[in-house]
Write a protein that binds this DNA or RNA. Structure first.
Lengths: 143, 143
DNA sequence: ATAGTAAGTGAAAACCCTTTTCAGTTAGAT
DNA sequence: ATCTAACTGAAAAGGGTTTTCACTTACTAT
């Protein structure tokens, strides 16, 4: 179940952050977007309801939400980052090298590998970073 | 076995690229470095033996070597890229969250997962990024 | 309600890394 | 030795992100 804008707002006030109109607007866009969005794309959408907002504020709000673990950030090789609502389920990303589209997938099945690596290296493994890079259906068709 | 500077140079001439002093210098640094280096770090090192070289040339040479598959490029979230000699074996990293030690491991066994993801999403998968994060043996003992 | 204050805002500038432009130089073919 | 396309370095441009700073505002304490 996706976190609501209300829930996120309450975390903010609880942590001592002020609940400004700008922050509400950014949160609303993030909550109502299904896709990963770049700061610029988010800015565009926020401006529809809040034309006076600055790109800087969008950056700052995203950074804050990210620090609080409310949204997650994906790096797209060299280009801009993208943000999306923090999902309730453990999942990973699949990035299109051409258009930057990000798809999600679950069930990474890394437990067995993780156990082997742990045994071989003596590391106590606490997490993993897994991302696939490729070309999405649309870009394949276009080519 | 690591490719030699001579081998790389011969690929260049074979492909019709000119073998300039600057390119030789960049290749030498890459071949003699064990770690991944950012363009800036590489530039610093190349300048020791070739003070007049421009950063642009370093970028251009790295791009060229990358296009030829002679070196590989790693994206480090948000920051600069880094380059290293194309390794003979496919491998991944295991990073200690405490001391920063990096261990390598091979056999990531992601083919099955990769096929499933490809089938489910329609993406043509070309590569993956896998990294484990944990605590190394030494840091566990110390704690 | 009101005033006070620290937090937050937007515009512009600064930053970093990377790419492009352009006039001058050079490796390698003839 | 000559020629020419490829290559070079400096400077400027570019894109995304962060910093700076004067102004504004959400919340707190009267």
């Amino acid at each position: 179940m996706r976190p609501s804008a209300r829930k996120i707002a309450s975390v903010l006030t609880q942590k001592g952050y002020k609940l400004t109109a700008q922050r509400r607007a950014v949160i609303d866009v993030v909550v109502n977007s299904r896709q990963h969005l770049s700061p610029a794309a988010l800015y565009e959408r926020v401006r529809r309801t809040h034309p006076a907002i600055g790109l800087v504020t969008v950056y700052r709000t995203l950074e804050m939400l990210y620090e609080l673990g409310l949204i997650c950030r994906v790096h797209r090789g060299g280009k801009s980052r993208s943000y999306t609502l923090a999902p309730s389920v453990h999942h990973h990303h699949l990035v299109c090298a051409q258009c930057g589209t990000v798809a999600d997938f679950t069930r990474c099945d890394l437990e067995v590998l993780q156990q082997r690596i742990s045994r071989e290296t003596g590391f106590k493994i606490e997490g993993h970073l897994l991302q696939f890079l490729g070309h999405c259906r649309d870009c394949q068709t276009r080519a």
